[in-house]
Amino acid sequence: MADMKKAEPPKDPSQYKGIMVYLDSFDGSLTRAAHEMIGVGRKMADKVKEPCIGVVIGDRVASMVDDAGKYGCDEVYGFESPDLSMYRSRPFTDILSGMVFEKKPNILIVPGTKNGRDLAARTAVRVQSGLTADCMEIDVEPETDILIARRPDYGDSTMSEIRCEKHRPQMATSRPGTFEVPPYDDKRTFKKEIRKVDLKKEQLREEILSFKPKGGEDITVSKVLVSGGLGMGNAEGLKLIEQLAELMGGSYGVTRPVADLGWAPRDHQVGQTGKIVRPDLYIAAGISGKPQHIVGMMDSKTVIAVNKDPEAEITKYSDYVINGDLYEILPVFIEELKKRKQGKGRK
């Protein structure tokens, strides 16, 4: 529980050193978002020549602690208890804020998964510091040790730079998918420490009754994504999009209005209020390319736009532009791919 008072900055912020990265996990493995954050922390640590400190909390943490080191942390602290096999807001906040008080990091970054956001928001209040959510860019100014956190504004046509100059640690979260996963290096050496924790009854008031894994595909891991916008004209259009996606072993995405209309489930929405994706190939069919959609897909490796309007905004974000009706263009793709697949089968 936090004191009911204003956020008090430390007298000497320069005593705070290092980049702490909270590493969230699921089912005994670090999440992809955690890996992304190690990459971000590693880069900043190199820039300011301070350690990148990982914090892992779970039931059995040894393999996750090793993972964190191999992906780029200099020091990794693991906290272990059978009561911590799943995320619980209070004990996780107690442990992470305890680490903040102990290690006094200058920066603390947390993956912006739902549990990560829950934890970051509570921890920021507990340690009396400032937190910036949904950052698209996270960097540090070496001269000042100040965290530069940039996030899209409402409507996303501009970005704000948010700073937390007086309070420590300077905190930020990012939506999963925003950054690349850093390379895994089996030979990396790092310092590790695993601590067994004994939790008190009052830390464990939250009881987890059940967990039902969600079926369906996770579009953030697909290598190929075919997305349809309002240009589909109706819910039927999604079949064409899905068919092409399936042929390429990928999945499908949609814009927000398509999800709003109920033409496709919300889980498939790409963009500011949907998922952030970075596939090898993104095909945008019947999508105008409004900034709120663009933020969700602009880091895709190759982008193909299919649009009736040759001037559509999406073209600026595309490597290839095919001008035309998606109902004429996508079937060409489907046919050509089928031909090539059959050819392969015969050989």
């Binding site: 920021a124 970005m159 602009m298």
Partner: peptide, 30 residues
């Protein structure tokens, strides 16, 4: 408030080559 909004920056724009592909060139693209 611990956080301060410093400045508004234009939205980062990745300019790609936007190469036009005609319908009959799709097989080649694939």
């Amino acid at each position: 408030s611990p956080t301060v909004v410093k400045k508004m920056l234009p939205f980062p724009r990745k300019d790609r080559k936007a190469e036009k592909i005609e319908k009959d060139k799709i097989p080649e693209l694939i």
